[in-house]
Computed example of a mutant assay.
Amino acid sequence: MRLFPRLAAAVATLSLSALALAAPTPRPSAGERLDHALLWGRSLDQITAAMTVKLGFQVAPGRPQGALANRYVRLDGERFIELLGLTGADAPLDPGAQADQAALHGAAGARTLVLHSDALDAARAALLARGLAATPVFSAAPDDPDGTGPGTPPRWSLFAVDPSPLSSRLFYIRYAPVRPDIAADRRSAREHPNGARELSALWLLSADAEADRAQLARLGYDRATPVRLAQIGARGYCVAIGASALLALQPDGAGAAADALAQGGAQIAGISIGVADLERARHLVGRGYERTLERYRGLAGASFLAPSRDDLGLWIEFHARDRATGPCGAAAAGAASANAGR
């Protein structure tokens, strides 16, 4: 008779164990946010000229790395846009650069994004537990140009989610603490004539925004808000990544987004940049492109769109900074008003 309670307890224990195994491993959220996008130019000088003369950014030096070279647009919170161009050197490209170039065919544009995590190993373990594939974590070598010399911690460590579950390639990265002398250089590099301060969002454009939204939820980012971007004719979702966001978009009928997808396939179609003074930025960028740029109410509030697609292979949206809202806070209000008017 005493076996029944023990049997019931055993069944309960097994059931709880099964639930624990079935439940997805919680995603570590320590310091997770957008880190940077890899933006290729037709050449490094071409994209640098567009970013400085037309768009009003300061571009910081990089270095040759075999068959390619890079430069940086540095922003607050150690976020940045990495500018890349082929050097013409007869040297192999790393697998990520090869994949980007296979998609771009020498054109300007972006196909890779990088997320930051303070808990890199835990982030990788959680993704593997969710059935995703990831490369081993690898770091800058002591003699790497991106390193800080023998006897010092690697400047960066990263892994790729490969194959990427998203329509663009995805990496996670972690950095060593920045040395004081380097930190001073970084602060100087963040002073932009256009007043740029933050990388607030990247726009992932594909034929199926719902697929990207579902894969972002699988990655552990399940705070999605429906949105429409009338300025390019797109709809989809705003998905919070820490204090920043990814937009999973698809064309909303005929328009600029449909044209971009037809011409370049799945891509990072836009970058949202928060600026200190929107009118100053609008005047400077309008002068660079020799046209008047109209303001509109975007997902992040008052915004304007730089006509940068021919130069960069993507749009740059500048918006006024608003720390009172979350990464998709204004987007939620915009989505509600857009749906009410449809």
Results as ranks from 00 to 15, higher is better:
2 R>D: 13
4 F>P: 12
11 V>W: 04
14 L>G: 12
17 S>K: 11
29 S>A: 14
32 E>G: 15
48 T>E: 08
49 A>H: 14
49 A>Q: 12
50 A>L: 04
52 T>P: 02
53 V>Y: 15
63 R>G: 13
73 V>I: 06
78 E>C: 14
79 R>Y: 11
110 A>F: 04
111 R>G: 09
115 L>G: 02
117 S>R: 03
119 A>R: 09
119 A>G: 08
120 L>I: 04
121 D>F: 13
131 G>P: 02
135 T>K: 06
138 F>I: 09
139 S>G: 09
141 A>R: 05
144 D>W: 02
145 P>M: 01
147 G>D: 09
152 T>H: 09
160 A>E: 11
167 S>D: 01
168 S>N: 15
177 P>C: 02
180 P>M: 03
192 H>M: 08
193 P>E: 12
201 A>Y: 11
201 A>C: 09
204 L>M: 12
205 L>H: 15
206 S>L: 04
207 A>N: 06
212 D>H: 07
212 D>N: 06
217 A>V: 07
220 G>T: 07
230 A>L: 10
230 A>S: 12
232 I>T: 07
232 I>P: 08
237 Y>P: 01
239 V>L: 02
243 A>D: 03
244 S>H: 02
245 A>H: 00
257 A>R: 03
264 G>M: 06
265 G>L: 05
266 A>W: 02
272 S>C: 12
275 V>R: 05
275 V>S: 07
276 A>M: 10
277 D>K: 00
279 E>M: 11
284 L>I: 08
285 V>P: 04
287 R>A: 09
290 E>C: 11
297 R>Y: 14
300 A>M: 14
303 S>A: 06
310 D>A: 09
311 D>T: 02
330 A>Q: 14
338 A>W: 04
339 N>P: 15
340 A>M: 04
